[in-house]
Amino acid sequence: MNLTYMFDVLVRLLPALGLTIALSITALLIATPIGLLLGSFRASSSSSGIIARLLDIYIFFVRGTPILVQIFIVYFVLPALGVKLALFWMGVLALVFNSVGYQIEIGRAAVQSVAKVQWEASRALGFDDRSTLFRFIMPQAARRMVGPVMNELSQLIKASSVLSIITLFELHKSAESIISADFRFVEVLVVEGFLYFLFIYTLSFFAVRLERRLSSSDGLVEQR
């Protein structure tokens, strides 16, 4: 294992790493607010409304199919419908589509975990339900989402690797092309793995820490 070569590969992969991060963070920034909104909707309305049903079908679909299939749907179906998107945005769209499916649940759980007494206190003061939700509940829910959302970001980084299949030159695709040029798969894969691991593990690690810290600072002991 030639360390000089590996360092060289690392440098060559940095732009691609940048693309991976850009894809993941963009997708996260779009998907998280949507998840929180739809999640709080899911948490507070009745479970038999039409929109609630539609959301359930959507979630069932997103969780029941591989992300590659979802990427293909965006990749093939959109042009067929006449929509022309740059490859980057197709990738982001697919990631958002997937992430929202999971973040609805995160948002829903976060909203539901805000203690009932908050609702009661606000109503007792005279606020209607809509104001309560936006003024008091969602801010508190957002705090509780930080941990799971960090975890979701690390999942998105993993998922972004699948975009290599539609020839988006993110980290995995770039590493692949270096391997097919130089044939030194061990060193390249180790560098690639190291870069992914750095981000994914660090995110998960802090996600767990944050989750614990934020849930205990409310003064309410939550059973995990």
């Binding site: 972004s160 690797s161 699948v162 995995h172 391997i179 894969l189 793995g193 992914y196 593990y201």
Partner: peptide
Amino acid sequence: IVRGIPPLVIIAFVYF
């Protein structure tokens, strides 16, 4: 490590 890297990388590793 296995949990912290994308499955595609594992697949590549095994494949090569």
